[in-house]
Design a protein around this nucleic acid. Structure first.
Lengths: 252, 252
DNA sequence: TCAAAAGTGTTAACGATACACCCATGA
DNA sequence: TCATGGGTGTATCGTTAACACTTTTGA
């Protein structure tokens, strides 16, 4: 028994596809060892154990990369889940853990991270995704139509993470991780509307954003769109940091 | 090596004493094993390992009780600290861990909880505090005049927890854990001023609070105070829950 | 009668909301 | 010329912020 056996990380990756909000999940496929016949399948959040010699952040990044090929994104720590029975509430989980050679009654504490990304950037399989993880078949599942069957306490974790995201997105610059370099205010509005599940008045929304000094207009407009081309803006991280240091409020 | 060796909890207990904001810390006293001569002393946050058969919450409560005698308070999970070198950045820590028979290069992830309490309720030693922990000598240390020498990454944890408290106190009903059953608005104002480190205009502050439906006036006033006795109020948890469910904003 | 905190009202500036029409583009 | 999303102004309302004096009590 070693450090790796007791501490794990999970990643809740929210992906916005310019239409709806999704979450990234993998397939968990339980097969009969002899015949290969499928006993059950359900969905599972990317996650794995933390190595002895890595920070928990690095572990989260590594695990996400190994399972999905997603690289170079910001992961934010969200919460740690450590209920006694979190791995053995369902028969499926007990069976699964026994089969992969783990004790279902072993304690595992999981540190959960989350992120918000552009779902369209990732279509699986991603090239450099490690071979043996391809079977996990990463995919986007819409928040409004989630798979019913999930491993362990992952449905609970996901629900909590979603609430956290919805709150966080109002006070933190999370959407800029998702927006392209150059974006229109209309796009930004659509993103907020999707994530928060409510609509904003266009004029009021723009007024508000335009007052934020870190949303800076470019000398550039949209090209070859079949409507009036929109003014493009960028997010100035330096100005944001400064404003944040002094002010400490802001955002919607 | 077992679960207990890898996962720990720490508690950052903020105590308001109606004058200033304090944090609860213990003495860490390193003595020469033979002579008993003191090699160094510094301060440490209450913390210990999580037992195999307890939830992380319960572990935090147990640990706090064992070290300080504090019982029956709300502990809120704050963040998990898992940097590789968090236990061996200072010579003191390495020496200490070796002496108590632990490997300074062992990984330990710590789940940190925090709370806000009335410091005057606790004066040490508390009766039912376990015998062998008395040597840790729990005490309140003012936030504005902290001990310089702290164990491990505890100064860092404390700083982060303080920022978290200051933010959280604006959106969560944390101050009601601290306020007596029946309180005046003047007291509430003093508490917010102390925690946030800035002053409010009395009239504006009261107007704001009085609009909150869960702050309910009693048929009762202060007694035998040497000034005009204040109207007393109580915090109605039920109304609060309901308002929160619908509204999801509020507080200062 | 004094000290100490309680309690109170108004104004001005700002932010939030509600609402409807014209504009530029490519197909 | 049409469909599409971009872009704009104003009025109302509620919230915030600034400000000074009177009241009640016990000592």
């Amino acid at each position: 028994m070693d450090f790796q056996d007791f501490v794990s990380v999970n990643c809740v990756i929210f992906g916005y596809d310019f239409e709806k909000l999704n979450v990234l999940m993998l397939d968990r496929i339980m097969t009969e060892p002899a015949s290969g016949k499928i006993i059950f399948t359900d969905k599972i959040l990317p996650g794995s154990h933390v190595n002895f010699d890595e920070d928990i952040n690095s572990a989260a990044k590594r695990v996400l990369f190994e399972f999905t090929g997603i690289d170079n994104i910001e992961l934010h720590q969200f919460r740690t889940f450590g209920a006694l029975d979190r791995l053995n509430r369902q028969d499926r989980d007990v069976l699964w853990l026994r089969t992969i050679g783990q004790d279902p009654y072993q304690r595992v504490v999981s540190i959960v991270f989350y992120s918000l990304v552009d779902a369209n950037k990732y279509e699986w399989p991603i090239q450099h995704q490690k071979e043996h993880h391809q079977m996990y078949n990463p995919g986007w599942y819409p928040i409004n139509d989630l798979p019913k069957e999930m491993a362990y306490d992952h449905h609970f974790i996901l629900d909590e993470a979603l609430a956290f995201l919805r709150d966080g997105v109002k006070y933190n610059p999370l959407v800029f991780e998702l927006l392209p370099e150059k974006f229109s205010l209309g796009l930004m509005q659509k993103i907020y509307e999707t994530i928060l599940g409510r609509n904003f008045d266009k004029r009021n929304f723009r007024r508000k954003l335009l007052k934020m000094p870190f949303i800076v207009p470019l000398n550039e407009k949209q090209q070859s769109v079949l409507h009036k081309p929109a003014q493009l803006y960028y997010f100035d991280r330096k100005i944001y940091q400064q404003v944040r240091k002094n002010n400490y409020d802001l955002m919607l």
